[in-house]
Design a binder for these strands. Structure first.
Lengths: 149, 149
DNA sequence: CCTGAATATGAATTCAAT
DNA sequence: ATTGAATTCATATTCAGG
């Protein structure tokens, strides 16, 4: 139940500006989800939504910047990277031809997420990540593998 | 007064997690700004801060994703681009040597901000933006010029 | 664990004053 | 235009029950 409701909430808040939980609650009711404001409050926390203010002075719930960034990363990384491996303290990221630069830039902009990164170097088909230690390399490789489709 | 207070608020919320306006109010008092919760509420709206939730379940006020993205764009674009011009429906963005790809990628990721963009093409020192119409090109050039230092 | 009802807490707004 | 005091409104939490 909760799963589906969360999904619906995400859809609802991106379609129209919703400025209060009560309103969201109504939309949910219309979609067949009978819940109280208390539940909506919890859902909003769990989904890490934020009540932001849009230019003028209009409040609306929306997904956080972090989440958008993360989603974007997952999507693009998955579409450009074909394989991850590592040896010693170097992680090798194999990409579809010509995609390595883009993938590498993407990886770089996402810095702050990764720890132990010394630097990156990109060719056409592959980029490498030089890590502080071998164990850092292993951990990073594991993490990145999750994004490969 | 308000200007300085806004600045202080931005500094305060990034130093420590602040989960309610009352707490922000106290920090402000410590910094010599005597205001009420009502004013803090207004400041927060004017600064477009959001109350977000960080991984665990900890609320904190922070600057919105949009703002961060915008700041980042201004900073990098200003540091990589040297000159903007246009002719017909093409905008030419001259960059410091070797920077064009990065600047162009940055421009692309900021899509949604620009209207009338057909596509981009990057060399080493320059990238071009093909626009729908000549007037689109003029408008974009004007906008982008503001970011050149 | 998930939820609702009631409640407590937090935040926005109104109204008046400057 | 900016603010504070009081108020209303919105949201988080508590507590109980499934």
């Amino acid at each position: 139940m909760k799963q589906a409701r969360h999904q619906m909430i995400l859809e609802l808040i991106e379609k129209q500006p919703i400025d209060k939980q009560e309103k969201l609650q109504e939309y949910l009711k219309a979609a067949g989800f009978l819940v109280t404001q208390a539940t909506v409050s919890r859902d909003i926390r769990e989904l890490q939504l934020v009540k932001s203010v849009d230019g003028n002075g209009v409040y609306r719930y929306s997904v956080s910047g972090r989440q958008e960034k993360q989603k974007r990363f997952e999507m693009i990384f998955g579409e450009t990277v074909s394989e991850i491996d590592y040896s010693g303290n170097i992680v090798m990221v194999k990409c579809f031809t010509g995609m390595a630069n883009a993938a590498c830039e993407l990886f770089d902009t996402e810095n702050g997420e990764w720890s132990g990164v010394v630097g990156t170097l990109s060719g056409d088909n592959t980029f490498i990540v030089l890590m502080r230690t071998e164990s850092d390399a292993g951990l990073l490789a594991e993490k990145l593998k999750k994004y490969v489709l």
